[in-house]
Amino acid sequence: MPDDIAEVYRNTYPALVRFLYRKVWDAERAADLAQEAFARAVVHKPENTRGWLFVVAANMARDEARRAAREKRHLTLLKNEPDAVHSEPDEAIDADRQRSAVRAALEQLTPRDREALLLWDAGMSYDEIATQTGLARGAIGTTLARARRRLVEAYDAGIEGGQHAARG
């Protein structure tokens, strides 16, 4: 029996947008893709709507990313350019800059680690992540631990690098 899509929509939409946002880095586009994914779900009526949605969303985001790959890399480089006058602590880093730093850090993760982390953050259970990524359920904890560590390290390295560059 397929899930009640309207119900899934209410519960999952924000998470799906968030999940997509961290792949396409454009709030409008993320919302569009999420709605497109739900629209497809309405047509396909999958058994496991939530899981299906994230698979479809991930695919759409990947297609999107391929298309915008070059542009995106260029943008990342630009955003990683250290701000010369910026030497304030973490808290003061404005939201935009922090977002680009997180983005840059996320991009240093392996695709599998990143996917697991984003799925977890989107509210998926280990079982769901296992189904989605093809990882063994028992490996999810380890994968997430590694992903989190790398994210934090890459982020700190990025910020520090930026400050070094600013000072030097």
Partner: peptide, 21 residues
Amino acid sequence: ASALLGAARPTERPAPPFEQL
């Protein structure tokens, strides 16, 4: 890690009504 991910989230906007979708 959760905080960092939280910093990289889109501005929360209400979902459009399902019927519209």
